[in-house]
Nucleic acid binder design. Structure first.
Lengths: 184, 184
DNA sequence: ACCTGAACACCGTTCAAGT
DNA sequence: ACCTGAACACCGTTCAAGT
């Protein structure tokens, strides 16, 4: 990539993070280009879809979480590992308010820029769940797709301004429902 | 209301139901006016906001649910009453895909056309929850606002096409977490 | 009393023209 | 190789002019 292009790429991301943080995931792409002082075409060249922008903004978080999931896979007890993972993925998804709908949709859209990250993330969760189930620590009547849906639901709750402050309690209630031991 | 106005009002609602059913709650208002063969101003005169359209479309369902909640209040056992209520409110909210976000936001927006319905609905749920709690059938560490948030989460899950088919199982898991008896 | 649609200020996306 | 912004087809909302 040419030096000027690289600079534009990085600068667009910085501005996009600000705009999305302020206005949520459905903020105006045009507004991002305007605030970044680049032509609309330049933004579209680097990020052909809104999802491509999301992916670039979340990539490092996704990567960190992936390594973390590997660590957690050998952490005992298995139920605590899954709750810790849940807490971390929900926090990442919340960092870009409203992006969770795109992430959940991406699971069944192979062409989405978010597809690979979300499939990987879902697979990590599935492994953690299956280990807890094998040890009798998680309910056996659910699968990785259900866990992924619960990540969506928890994140959605956190995203709603009118539900502010209830996230922690509801996290406890829902994550407690996955486990067999009882309270978290 | 003049006869022609009344006819327009009813016809807009019929068309709006079709358009929202097909495209979800964020469908184009302009498109509704176009398909109803009325001027844009006519639509805005009858329904000054998108929420006013939602409210009119859901009003009879809300009213039915309100009467139903009164019945359920004296239905034994109290835990079964709350689960039945949950099932019915989630089904109503799902009938207009995507409207749940507006409903949850309306709780803290007194000027929203959806405010009164949602406050009433939340109050019904709270009464049912408190009765179950008094009988030791529901966990005591949550309140009506938490229950309302769970209605939101359950409806959101049902709204996501990529999570189709998991609604029933997740309903069981989450509603089971509210109750103390265990499985639903 | 009610209806209409032009007008305004936006938006996402594409692509010919420039450097 | 990359950037620009006009052009196109939309959108929500308002309001003067009509019946």
């Amino acid at each position: 990539m040419r030096a000027d292009a690289q600079k534009n790429y990085a600068h667009i991301l910085t501005v996009a993070r600000d705009v999305f943080t302020e206005q949520g995931a459905d903020a105006s792409i045009r507004d991002v280009a305007r605030k970044a002082d680049v032509g609309l075409g330049t933004l579209y060249r680097h990020f052909p879809t809104r999802e491509a922008l999301f992916e670039a903004l979340l990539r490092s978080s996704f990567n960190t979480l992936e390594r973390r999931a590997d660590e957690l896979q050998s952490l005992e007890p298995a139920d605590q590992a899954i709750v810790t993972w849940l807490r971390e993925i929900v926090e990442i998804a919340c960092s870009l308010r409203g992006v969770i709908a795109a992430m959940v949709a991406a699971i069944e859209e192979p062409d989405s820029a978010l597809h690979a990250s979300c499939v990987t993330m879902k697979a990590s969760g599935t492994r953690l769940l299956e280990r807890a189930q094998a040890q009798g620590l998680a309910r056996s009547d659910m699968d990785g797709a259900d866990l992924f849906a619960l990540v969506g639901a928890l994140t959605w709750i956190q995203d709603q301004p009118s539900l502010a402050g209830r996230g922690e309690r509801l996290f406890g209630i829902i994550s407690g429902a996955i486990l067999l031991g009882g309270a978290v």
